[in-house]
């Protein structure tokens, strides 16, 4: 995770990354933070990502899976 930018997350490309940055989520770990605040709930997280950066379900599912895997690995 480190200091990686938000675009490093799966499903988050340049466009979504820009939108997330505008919303204040410039680093991947801030998104991780939100993911954890939502208690790793898939539905809620995807909904949040959709609200925040207009992600489609494929993108948000990828992002969710990516963070989920990271958490399973390192938490």
């Amino acid at each position: 995770m480190g200091e990686k930018p938000v675009t490093e997350l799966a499903g988050v490309g340049e466009v979504l990354g820009k939108r997330l940055e505008v919303a204040g989520f410039d680093k991947a770990y801030t998104v991780l933070g939100q993911f954890l605040v939502l208690k790793k709930d898939k539905e809620l997280f995807q909904e949040w990502l959709k609200d925040t950066c207009n992600a489609n379900s494929k993108q948000s599912a990828d992002c969710y899976q990516c963070l989920k895997d990271w958490c399973d690995e390192f938490l």
């Binding site: 939100q34 605040v37 939502l38 208690k39 709930d41 809620l44 909904e47 949040w48 609200d51």
Partner: peptide, 11 residues
Amino acid sequence: PGPIQDTTRNL
């Protein structure tokens, strides 16, 4: 629910 904050309330 998890913590209800500004960023999560709407959800």
